[in-house]
Design a protein around this nucleic acid. Structure first.
Lengths: 145, 145
DNA sequence: AAAAATGTCTACTATTCCTATATACTTTAT
DNA sequence: ATAAAGTATATAGGAATAGTAGACATTTTT
């Protein structure tokens, strides 16, 4: 399961992706609009900022905006910042690899090999889906109603 | 991340899959062989038994054996018993669906729609991979060394 | 029949991680 | 100078995960 942190992070990026042509948006506003606890959101936005996804401005009239185009922010990148590994077992992780304690021989571990397949399948979708895609899909789905 | 419970469950099933032609195997032995806490493993095997994957026999000479062919036990089934949902968000789950509290309109939620894609990709691999596959792969990988 | 070997069941404890909150600090606009 | 923001770190509470304990039930062996 996705952590709330990650879910909130994606929501915030989507909101900011829709706000591209406007002045920066305040934490407060994002929090209200998406029903996210403000203080929690602060931390999340900070992480996203430190990871380079967001631009922030302090003081009156400040707030957050995207630091990249929505087309260039992919779910996989966000999730790695907020949740860490994509793989379901540490020994199958590309970016957060570590050996499973109990595992005797990783090279011939069938479980690992199966979960490398799972990881690859998951990764394919996550690396192909950007914030822009999500926004576009929402627009499309709204039209269809 | 996979819970240890699920990991242990798969390991046990693999061990028992390799033991098909022999008498039932004791919890104790599986626990030692796979470095799994015995008492924890007891619970897990019980779950697997109640879900129909295992056959058990009490008393001297008792133990556990597979109740199905290794070809007919798929990772997705095991994971649903031990970990629950496959999807990363509850609103995208087939077997454990429930609405996200904060979500205003599920029908037009872009995040949901993206994670339905992720779920489908994950599911494909998990429904195609059986305990027999895992065993066969291990044999193959051992030969290649 | 008694004893030993196993699995069954329920409850409890410990630990870790997630979620959220609190507090103090920094920068910027007016 | 003051108010409106974001920055940073610490910590508390709670839920989920991992693991443990003990009494019980069934089957085999002697």
């Amino acid at each position: 399961m996705l952590s709330k942190k990650t879910k909130y992070a994606i929501k915030a990026l989507v909101v900011l992706g829709k706000n591209m042509d406007n002045p920066p948006m305040q934490i407060q506003k994002i929090a209200e609009q998406e029903s996210i606890p403000k203080k929690f959101l602060e931390q999340i936005l900070l992480d996203l900022r430190n990871a380079g996804f967001l631009f922030s401005k302090k003081g009156a009239g400040g707030g957050y905006s995207l630091n990249k185009k929505p087309e260039d922010i992919f779910l996989v990148q966000v999730m790695r910042v907020t949740d860490g590994p994509i793989a379901m077992v540490p020994c199958a992780s590309l970016n957060f690899y570590h050996k499973c304690e109990e595992c005797e021989d990783e090279k011939t571990c069938g479980i690992r090999s199966a979960f490398i397949d799972v990881r690859d399948a998951t990764l394919k979708v996550l690396t192909e889906t950007s914030i822009a895609h999500i926004i576009a899909r929402e627009d499309k789905m709204k039209l269809l109603l």
